[in-house]
């Protein structure tokens, strides 16, 4: 986990529904574990910290570093 990371996925909570993969406008997420469908962020640099994935994630598995000044 780098200090530059902006988005975290709690793998213990992710059920692999895939909503975040489809909903993120910048394609930050991808499937990490094909079997379980668990998701991981691959595009940290692309993340704008808009935070919609955090709301759309039904399993409280995604966390976004708040934007500076927010």
């Amino acid at each position: 986990m780098s200090e530059l990371d902006k988005v975290f996925v709690d793998e213990k909570l992710c059920k692999g529904c895939g909503i975040c993969i489809n909903i993120c406008p910048y394609h930050v997420f991808t499937v990490k574990d094909e079997l379980k469908g668990i998701v991981t962020p691959i595009g940290q640099d692309k993340c704008t910290q808009c935070g919609i994935c955090e709301i759309y994630c039904p399993d409280f598995a995604i966390a976004i570093v708040p934007k500076k000044g927010m």
Binding site: K15, C17, I19, I55, C57, P58, F60
Partner: peptide, 11 residues
């Protein structure tokens, strides 16, 4: 269940 809308309502 995975993908259930209830989690979004909670959020």
């Amino acid at each position: 269940c995975p993908g259930c809308g209830l989690g979004i309502i909670i959020n």
